[in-house]
């Protein structure tokens, strides 16, 4: 990817299927949790992980028209329905799937859905208004949107199906910190260990990447 695609600026579209822990029960050899980190370190690549059918369709169409190196990451199971969310899509532009001023949750790929469910529960149970962003393009990152979210000082949570190092969370944290923002911040991802085995849902639950897990993290972050 570095030499033959990105350095040589060939318009190759690398499409990953069954990413993350889609093949949870098959073990670590079949867990793909390092792709964002490895690819983000390479110059001249666009990295995209769609969250639902709308983004998937838009991303495939945009990929065909895109004349630069691109990495498109898909999961395995059926895509979720994110309600009557915003229907605009462009690489490099985060998609707001829910709006609220108390908290922001930034997720991508298959973690947007549990983030969206957690935001609904936060409103229903605690009256907390949450913005949920599908940051489908992790590179180039939508830094403009990121700074807009951070401006009022609200806590920010990132959620991803990836190792805690080198992914969406670190990309967001790195940008905000360097721009002088110090919002309460929590990265929810797979910790630095060899992942437990089980179905994708079992692994998500194990690491708190679930409606309940994100809800609890949000509640605690808002307390502090």
């Amino acid at each position: 990817m570095k030499n033959d695609v990105c350095y040589s600026d060939n318009p190759v579209k690398l499409v990953a299927i069954s990413a993350g822990v889609s093949y949870g029960a098959l073990g670590t050899t079949h867990h793909s949790l390092h792709d964002f980190a490895a690819l983000r370190a390479i110059n001249n690549i666009t990295i995209v992980a769609p969250a639902d059918n709308f983004e998937t369709e838009q991303a495939v169409k945009a990929a065909i028209a895109h004349e630069k190196p691109l990495y498109l990451r898909f999961g395995k199971k059926d895509m979720p329905y994110l309600g009557d969310s915003d229907k605009t899509f462009a690489f490099g532009k985060g998609r707001i799937v829910r709006e609220g001023t108390d908290l922001a949750i930034i997720a991508n790929g298959e973690t947007v859905y549990p983030a969206w469910l957690a935001a609904k529960k936060l409103e229903e149970v605690l009256g907390i208004q949450t913005t949920v962003v599908s940051m489908h393009t992790i590179k180039p990152l939508d830094t403009e949107l990121l700074e807009q979210l951070a401006k009022n000082g609200r806590p920010i949570i990132t959620v991803e199906e990836h190792m805690v190092y080198g992914g969406l969370g670190e990309a967001c944290a790195s940008h905000l910190f360097q721009k002088g923002y110090h919002n309460p911040f929590k990265i929810m991802a797979i910790p630095d260990e060899y992942t437990v085995t089980g179905s994708q849902g079992e692994i998500f639950n194990h690491y708190g990447i679930s409606k309940e897990g994100i809800y609890e993290v949000a509640k605690n972050l808002l307390k502090n």
């Binding site: 093949y23 029960a25 073990g27 085995t197």
Partner: peptide, 13 residues
């Protein structure tokens, strides 16, 4: 075999 947290996963370990 292949259950949650089992060592008997779908590949040799």
């Amino acid at each position: 075999l292949c259950s949650y947290q089992s060592h008997y996963i779908g590949h040799p370990t």
